[in-house]
Design a protein around this nucleic acid. Structure first.
Length: 917
RNA sequence: GCUCGGAUGGUGGAAUGGUAGACACGCAAGACUUAAAAUCUUGUGACCAUUACGGUUGUGCGGGUUCAAGUCCCGCUCCGAGUACCA
């Protein structure tokens, strides 16, 4: 029988599906292992060959863990809400649900072909009411919670109301939008609406006025991680800053826990670093400045309290609330003019063109320590959203302040001995303080500490930790997303009753904003709850993807997100595989969401993903043909220098090993029908380059085509063989033959001349050795996610067994199990060929036995001064002394030593004798 | 600018401080074939020898530690990724 992969793969795909081979249940007799992939957004283009890379890796690991006796949860689903389906709907009128469904079916078909061991019984789709019911439920819990900084956890808002009734807002340490102050009496005297306004200040899901990234082209706000270089991540449209009332999640309250948690999880350092930067903890002090001639003070945040004597001016962000209060009437006109120009500049312009701009407010502040009077300016280099939106400027020791001072001719006072600030600022935190009153003579590090203490002792401000991490803006003015479980009464939001969840996404006639500028849900008929209007915004993309891994544990539960027992069994994800692009988005939101659910007691683990691996991107490998200018003649790569040519992308699917299929090229596009060629050695050789895999470069390789041509097992092996999992690398179909050949060799161990030929004889020593070398290598490789070297080990083993003409059942059946994680189809087929009636999934990974690897003889390499010269065989277990003695007496050694006496002899067990002359 | 990675044959890539280049592609030669494809065998870092079982050199560059460095340390160059007026 020949290796007919397409028949085999179809057969087992159907068998696995019919027999529900990969369904798992909680099983207390086995240890659990949870392997998760980042679920895909089903786009219209389908999968290309780069997408399954991570899925193949996680599938190999899942299958391996099963063979090792674990009960493995390995689910898959779809992140089904998203902009592309909605944009498509706007253009065509096709409902996004239909587009999404269609794309999902295509994805499912493509994934099944590759032989993944997903438990499809647990599939989830974020756009289905049974699923988003729990997204809405979580939102309600966040709305009904506040964050207690003392206990570092979320608490029910009802507790807070009780506190307000008893003692007002005194002595509270709670995460909030702004610090409020009222007594119990004042609280009780407030109207319901006023009380609700106050509570909003503390809720974890809250409505807040904040500066948001508004994207006019998409007609919606975007979260910080959805804006890249000042344009939208989706579509690349310009984004501007706008103050709007939006739903927000108080992610910032969890900043410290998100930071601490990183120490407890097994992620790569670079990913942890990215998250640390995003959270952006900085320790410093808040310092109060009084304003001259006004009964007003304002607060700045600084990490360099030591530089207080070098403050020569203050700067406010243009959007700062202080601006209107400090501008004098003489300066009003000029300030207004400045604020106008700032407003017109988009975020992108601000980033690209960093020229120094600013305006004087007319007011002066008083330095609380030195007493100096200093001018207050406004400039857009100060950000409203960070710290207090106001800074003390120390031009001598901050490059931005320096540039500003130079531009507007403001004084610069150096504070560090020997610092030359005539050309640039001295930003380093080192040196001895001068010109600094009580800080003189201290090192910068000491001075920072001393100044902070001084500020605290004298009540000039407080020591403060600031985070760059912002609250997540949670409203989108879009149709295709989860509706909020919120209705409005008297202008204030209230949550719908949990028993009325889910609030289903209504139908609309068009997927565009209404004529009055309301979001698309404004078009829905009867969009009310108990007679009150429902929220018109929908939730953002990350809402549905933040807790999906929990839902997989108990996907059909309609009583709760996950049952307590189930969650205590599956707990958190043991291995999560996905791309780095989610480092500051999904992976922050998920951790936040999980920590909130942990506070609630819904889940039993504080961190969602214990170990995380980032698979590298698969880039495209484009091919080029070279057209001689003004002709329809194409010249082969190595002859192109003789002509004036234009390189053109050519479809990589009609190129094989960089050799162009001439007929296919002529038929590729009409304009090439009459193409002529200048060949080298009778072939047309194409040029190549690594680029992003995309349609426009004609370098997209579809996994279906590879599966049809070579089989899924070959695809799986080859994707792993391509290089280390975490590294980005181009897809290059050249070389896939090697893997394909390997599988045929494996097959031929079982079949001779097309006949099944298996021997029941005892395996020989060599055969056992070849097998156990493999068992050892693959076991450690898989644990280290070094899949490419595992594939190499398979090839070596099969080559060895082939040359030993091994057809022993005892060897082959263990070999098949070892290979089954990587190439499940062929392994399943051969497993049954050997007479097994169970599936290979139920087998056990063979135990490694060291005895088979023991050698009778050991080859020692003899080196002189570290340079290897010859080898000598020793019996295994020879002592160091014996080896040394015998080596020195050896004829060749004598020759190399030329009668000299060695200074030193180093014997490395089983490896090397190094003789130092 | 800052942070984190990386640099090894024609190519993708292997190497707990211990024979660098596993494995694969490609290439070359040979076998089979009327022929081609497929398959199999052998060779394949460079340089020099080739009568020899050989010699020299070699992991981006310059130093260092060590009996021994692709691997560890110091200083550069280049490439990639993330982040960026974060006070």
């Amino acid at each position: 029988m020949e290796y007919n992969f397409s028949e085999i793969e179809k057969k087992w795909q159907k068998y696995w599906e019919d027999n529900k081979t990969y369904q798992v249940k909680e099983d207390n007799t086995k240890p659990k292992y949870y392997v998760l992939d980042m679920f895909p957004y089903p786009s219209g283009a389908g999968l290309h060959v780069g997408h399954p890379l991570g899925y193949i890796a996680s599938d190999i690991y899942s299958r391996y863990k099963r063979l090792k006796g674990f009960n493995v949860l390995h689910p898959m689903g779809y992140d089904a809400y998203g902009l592309p389906a909605e944009q498509y709907a706007i253009q065509t009128g096709q409902h996004p649900a239909i587009t999404t469904e269609k794309n999902i079916n295509r994805y499912k078909e493509q994934l099944d072909k590759i032989g993944f061991s997903f438990d499809w019984n647990r599939e989830i789709r974020t756009c289905e009411p049974d699923y988003y019911k729990w997204t809405q439920w979580a939102f309600i819990q966040m709305f009904n919670s506040y964050y207690c900084n003392d206990e570092q956890q979320a608490r029910p808002i009802a507790e807070l109301i009780e506190v307000f009734e008893q003692q007002g807002s005194q002595n509270l340490n709670i995460a909030c939008s702004e610090t409020l102050s009222f007594s119990a009496e004042e609280w009780k005297a407030k109207t319901e609406k006023e009380q609700q306004e106050i509570l909003m200040n503390y809720r974890i899901a809250y409505l807040g006025d904040s500066m948001v990234n508004w994207c006019p082209a998409l007609g919606t706000v975007l979260a910080n991680d959805e804006v890249i270089d000042g344009v939208s991540e989706r579509g690349g449209h310009p984004v501007e800053q706008r103050k709007m009332r939006q739903w927000c999640l108080r992610v910032s309250a969890y900043a410290q826990r998100l930071l601490n948690g990183l120490d407890t999880i097994d992620w790569t350092d670079s990913l942890k670093e990215t998250q640390k930067n995003w959270i952006g903890r900085s320790e410093g002090a808040e310092l109060k400045f009084k304003i001259k001639d006004l009964d007003l003070d304002f607060t700045v945040f600084t990490t360099r309290a030591d530089t207080i004597y070098g403050v020569t001016f203050m700067v406010l962000a243009p959007e700062s609330d202080y601006v209107s209060q400090v501008v004098t009437s003489e300066q009003q006109e000029e300030v207004n003019k400045y604020l106008e120009t700032v407003k017109r500049r988009t975020e992108r312009e601000r980033q690209i063109d960093k020229k120094v701009t600013g305006v004087f407010t007319g007011s002066y502040a008083i330095n609380p320590i030195s007493g100096t009077i200093i001018p207050i300016w406004i400039s857009d280099y100060v950000l409203a959203g960070y710290g207090t939106g106001a800074i003390m400027a120390v031009p001598a020791h901050d490059s931005r302040d320096y540039a500003f001072a130079k531009h507007f001719n403001l004084p610069i006072i150096p504070l560090i001995e020997g610092a030359d600030v005539s050309e640039e600022s001295f930003d380093a935190k080192e040196g001895i303080m001068i010109n600094s009153g009580f800080l003189n003579g201290l090192t910068v590090k000491e001075a920072i500490q001393r100044a902070k203490e001084y500020i605290a002792e004298n009540n000039l401000g407080q020591i403060k930790v600031n985070y760059r991490l912002r609250d997540a803006i949670f409203s989108r003015q879009r149709y295709w997303g989860e509706p909020f479980p919120i209705y409005y009464k008297d202008g204030m939001p209230y949550t719908v009753d949990e028993s009325d969840l889910p609030i289903k996404l209504p139908n609309v006639d068009k997927f565009l904003p209404t004529e009055t500028g309301e979001p698309p849900l404004g078009r829905a008929k009867d969009w009310t709850y108990k007679g009150y209007p429902l929220e018109l915004n929908t939730m953002p993309g990350f809402a549905g993807s933040s807790a999906y891994y929990i839902r997989y544990e108990d996907p059909k539960n309609d009583k709760s997100l996950v049952s307590k027992e189930t969650n205590e069994y599956w707990r958190n994800v043991d291995l999560y595989i996905g791309g780095t692009e989610h480092a500051t988005g999904h992976l922050i939101y998920s951790r936040f969401w999980n920590k909130f659910l942990f506070d609630l007691g819904t889940v039993c683990e504080d961190e969602p993903f214990r170990k995380l691996i980032n698979q590298g991107m698969i880039q495209g490998r484009s091919n080029f043909v070279y057209r001689i200018k003004d002709t329809n003649t194409f010249v082969s790569l190595n002859l192109k220098e003789q002509y004036e040519v234009t390189p053109l992308h050519v479809d990589v699917n009609i190129v094989s090993n960089d050799m162009l299929d001439l007929e296919a090229f002529k038929n590729w596009r009409p304009e090439f029908k009459d193409a002529e060629f200048i060949l080298e050695d009778g072939k047309y050789i194409c040029g190549w380059a690594v680029e992003k895999m995309s349609k426009s470069m004609y370098n997209v390789v579809n996994p279906d085509d590879i599966v049809d041509k070579f089989g899924a097992d070959t695809l799986r092996l080859y994707e792993m063989f391509l290089g280390p999992l975490e590294q980005s690398k181009p897809w290059d179909t050249n070389g896939i033959d090697g893997v394909s050949r390997f599988l045929r060799k494996l097959w031929n161990l079982f079949y001779k001349n097309g006949e099944l030929c298996i021997s029941q004889d005892e395996p020989t020593k060599e055969e056992l050795k070849a097998l156990h070398k493999l068992i050892k290598k693959v076991g450690t490789d898989i644990e280290n996610f070094s899949f490419n070297t595992s594939v190499a080990a398979f090839m070596i083993c099969v080559n060895e067994l082939t040359s030993l003409k091994c057809n022993k059942k005892a060897i082959l059946s263990e070999l098949v199990v070892v290979i089954s994680s990587f190439a499940p189809f062929i392994a399943e087929e051969l497993w049954h060929t050997l007479g097994n009636t169970t599936t290979v999934v139920d087998a056990r990974f063979p135990e490694f036995n060291e005895n088979y690897l023991k050698e009778d003889n050991v080859k020692y390499t003899v080196s002189f001064n570290g340079k290897a010269r010859f080898t000598i065989d020793f019996p295994a277990g020879a002592s160091k002394e014996e080896v040394e003695k015998t080596t020195l007496a050896h004829e060749s050694a004598q020759k190399w030593m030329e009668g000299k006496t060695p200074k030193k002899v180093i014997v490395v067990p089983n490896k090397i004798v190094n003789i130092v002359l």
